[in-house]
Write a protein that binds this DNA or RNA. Structure first.
Lengths: 197, 197
DNA sequence: TCCAAAACAGGATGATCATCCTGTTTATAA
DNA sequence: TTATAAACAGGATGATCATCCTGTTTTGGA
């Protein structure tokens, strides 16, 4: 019997973060036990504790590295790349709605899920989540300002539009998750569009 | 030493529900231990178990009796009593914002807080919360239809307006809670109004 | 008055969970 | 090669928690 082991700190860290991000979104922070995460990731207690000394440290890493990245990928980057803020917002709503429809269930927005459970519990959690919200809003507002500089988009207040968009999306996802029906997303998008044209 | 005790089933049930509703909103369902609730309500384990056999039963009672009642009081009744749907919505937003400003902190919307934590965990929770959301939207949509019947309110789609309003409010409260700043509520309200006039 | 059921008391129990601790193995740099 | 730290293993521990159980008191009806 040969003994073999290959140390792979980055890979192990990544696997734990993958499993934790998934479980936190599906079951929430408190309902996700470290034992479950260890089993799901195929990681021992010692390894987990080495990379993340506490559960809180793990959650902060999930927020900083996974939740922020997910928002960048599904919202911020597409809006920046879109021809206009309004078109970008519409496309993201529709893309998310389409994805939810084909997967058949709604787990909600990772940012909102964690924000509700953690922002009152711990100020470090709160601050980390708040800064992601702020970056989200700013990306949309900046895009509106860009549109205004290059001719389009009349007198829309960029910050108001951004706040309303983020709020409408977050709230729509809340309802979609609770009803397990992504139709609300499209309904809210139509409301946003029909009001602003 | 005289022994005295006055049975007060309704009062005891009410006190437990008060404490539980408060704690569920402030700390969430999982982070609220029955021991804490017992201490805060001044109730023994036997009494608690007599009125609510399980923690889940307690939470369902909180949802059905307290969360639903809170929404009726702060949203549905004011909107129904308002001269128009739009004015009702605006007044509620402003009333809530004013209340949050004077109390100095934001605990979020009880319905949304519980919806995020519980709707994926248990289908009975999910269904109870979803029906409250549905009633909320319907009350607003009905008010719009009333307005249209009595002359006002042009071609606004009642269901779209209701969905957008509830989503915007829920999402704005999410952000306000995470940022601990009620300003977002007013910002979103301005966005809603400026788009719809 | 008497009795059965409801209301309440308070401790027991077993399971769960996050953290910690003591080792062992692998990588790195001198 | 060797020393040192990082990476990993796996069990121990103590605390917490929801539920249950046995017993006592109160209440309302017969």
């Amino acid at each position: 019997m040969r003994k073999k082991r290959t140390n792979d700190p980055e890979g192990m860290r990544r696997r734990v973060l993958d499993v934790a991000a998934d479980s936190f979104q599906a079951r929430g922070y408190h309902a996700s036990s470290l034992g479950d995460l260890m089993a799901a990731a195929g990681v021992t207690g010692g390894a987990l504790h080495h990379h993340f000394p506490t559960k809180k440290a793990l959650a902060l890493a999930v927020i900083d590295e996974r939740v922020a990245a997910a928002l960048l990928e599904t919202w911020i980057a597409p809006v920046r790349a879109a021809p206009s803020a309004r078109e970008g917002v519409r496309d993201v709503f529709e893309a998310v709605a389409a994805e939810l429809e084909q997967q058949g269930y709604v787990r909600g927005c990772p940012l909102n899920n964690l924000a509700h459970e953690l922002s009152l519990a711990d100020d470090q959690f709160r601050a980390a989540l708040a800064s992601i919200f702020a970056g989200w809003r700013q990306a949309i507002a900046d895009k509106v300002r860009d549109d205004q500089r290059t001719g389009g988009e009349g007198g829309t207040d960029p910050d108001r539009f951004a706040a309303l968009t983020v709020a409408a999306y977050s709230g729509a996802m809340s309802m979609a998750k609770t009803a397990q029906d992504s139709g609300v997303l499209r309904e809210c998008l139509r409301g946003l569009i029909s009001l602003s044209t």
